[in-house]
Amino acid sequence: MARKIVITSGKGGVGKTAIAANLGARLAKNGKRTCALDADFGLNNLDVVAGVENLVVYDVSDCLEGKCRAKQALIQSPADKNFYVLPSVNAFLKGKTVPDELGSLISGLETSFDFVLIDCPAGVGGGFHTAVSAADEALVVVTPHISSLRDADKVLSVLRSYSLKSVGIIVNRVRGDLAVTGDVFTPEQIETALKAEVVGIIPEDDSMFLCNAGFLPYDAPPNKAFKILASNVAEGKRKMYDYASGYTGFFGSIRRSIKRNI
């Protein structure tokens, strides 16, 4: 039976889609059969981030309307044979609340996968509730800034009213140089403020928008970070990506000042 994890956030643009796609690809590389499903019908992007937009035949709305079966809409990712994407491309559902059939659609995938990651709309609107109802775990994506954290707190308080098995935080776009100098919130400070556990840290890096999901260069910092995140999620470990590495000590201070000046 698949673990169904909704990837959500308070604020938009914090990296839900990028994380759903890259975490999905990484879990798949570790041998877990994984499906990432786009439930953000208004601002759908999962197909593009996963690099499968040219392979779309049917999408989630076709499944919900009964035009096809879920398995016909699944696209095998070029990144890994274990990774599938259920995209949303159709304008059909825009502006409407997401129909409750989404829950049954996702349940239908349960036996075929180890993980179903649900890319959810930001905020706590109708689409959020449908996506969360279909999941049994949640990951809330935040960036280490006040506005994102404040909105995440609201989402967390709503999530607590669902009986989810676990709710964790992923801190995305962490700049090691700024974390070291105390100019952004550290994961520890975020845990204290939001009273929820941080399960992963993803650094700020250009490779995140330059590369399709699953194709992060071997030596790119997010590649290492997703490896750690995937094993935290899959095996319940709590290892953390070392965002400060390279930014402390003498050479670190030089690197920080270079970063400041570009």
Binding site: D183, V184, T186, Q189, A193
Partner: peptide, 9 residues
């Protein structure tokens, strides 16, 4: 993050 902003959050 510096203390002022932690308090602000």
């Amino acid at each position: 993050m510096k203390r002022d902003n932690v308090i602000r959050l």
